[in-house]
Design a binder for these strands. Structure first.
Lengths: 219, 219
DNA sequence: CGTTGTGAACTTATTCACAGCT
DNA sequence: AGCTGTGAATAAGTTCACAACG
């Protein structure tokens, strides 16, 4: 073994690496489903529009998984990625806000398959409270803090209107939830004990519009 | 990968710049609504978690809008950004796939306010075809190409299951649509005449999980 | 052989710092 | 005095290229 005396302080992979790792993981799951034992960085990257060296560098952040002359064993690498992403276990999730978007999120099976289990949903609208959507009960948001304890909720998906997002997020944070996936088009200003990811549909559409305009100019 | 050895004289702002421009635009709209005439790069950045110099550099890609000693006039800058993003006009949009997520997208008012007008929706499920959701008619997907012509559709939001995404996207591309906002967890491989943006909910959740785990390690 | 892991080179993005305008 | 616009400095991210190894 060459010198393993590397300092390696607080090496945190960049966000971009993490999202590519998710991409790799998904492809690996497909390869496994198709019965492929191994995959090379060249093939994995080719399928996802990423260079082979990028694939190897990215994977390097999470450890040493490859086998020279062979490639990566799909199962081994998939397990390693899940381990590092923190999704080798199940995450109990709460949904806050059961309007159109919220209800769609309840119906989206993709989460469960990747380790995220929506346990309970909340709203303030009495017309919704008490209903069962996709088998998940909608409770009054006033009970949020209590249920977070009993159900051990760690993540919340926030799908309330923009003008309520900031205040609702503050309350969620106070209840001890560790992460919020924010669908409202608003910057949440929270203590950094709470991690926040944003999904902003309008920004994506505007990026698309811009790309189209640029495309036309050169075409 | 094919040749791309052009010394391209036309500078194109990076994607990251574009999404921050969207962010600035939204904040500017709020400032206007609150009656503020001008805003400085420091304040604008502070509200959005971006440095002042980053704000100025970003804006610089789109032109010269500031007034020394004053800041940016909100209306002027907002107009300039819309002009550059290509959202100063209305974009006619089609929705493809009217399941849970698709229907939620139809109900999401945020698009319309930013210049994206969903004109028509498509599905292959006969149980859905003919219905009117949020005032928007659901048509059979076989009519897609025809309607794209008559309604002058330029953008499509793709919200079909993963296993249909690639084929459906190919058909959309063939109909002359210029951009696709893809909600399916699949890489679309299309001719580069069609711009693609991806919204991948699972990736976002995994990023969140990772951030939470990292947060806990240092906390 | 084929394919990884990785330093070094290169490219892109961000921050600094300040001249210059109002 | 206040605040932008921007070149120069720094940092971050990507690709290259090749030794090392099953």
């Amino acid at each position: 073994m060459p010198d393993s005396n590397k300092p390696v302080p607080t090496v945190t992979p960049p966000k971009a690496v993490i999202s590519r790792m998710s991409l790799y993981l998904r492809q690996l799951e497909r390869e496994i489903a198709e019965g492929n034992e191994t995959i090379s960085s060249t093939r994995l990257g080719g399928l996802l529009g990423v260079t082979d060296s990028q694939v190897r560098k990215d994977i390097g952040w999470f450890g040493t998984f490859g086998h020279r002359g062979v490639g990566y064993r799909c199962r081994e690498l998939a397990d390693g990625i899940r381990q590092n992403l923190g999704t080798a276990r199940q995450w109990p999730v709460a949904l806050v806000g059961c309007g159109n978007l919220g209800q769609a999120l309840l119906g989206y099976g993709g989460f469960t398959r990747r380790g995220f289990k929506v346990r309970v949903a909340f709203d303030r609208n009495p017309a919704l409270v008490g209903k069962l959507i996709q088998g998940i009960p909608i409770l009054d948001f006033s009970r949020f803090s209590e249920i977070v304890q009993t159900e051990q909720i760690e993540l919340a998906m926030l799908a309330v209107p923009a003008d309520q997002a900031e205040a609702t997020a503050a309350e969620i944070a106070r209840s001890g939830v560790s992460g919020i996936l924010n669908f409202a088009p608003t910057r949440l200003n929270l203590p950094e004990t709470v991690a926040v990811s944003n999904v902003d549909l309008t920004i994506e559409l505007e990026q698309l519009a811009f790309a189209v305009v640029r495309n036309r100019k050169k075409g």
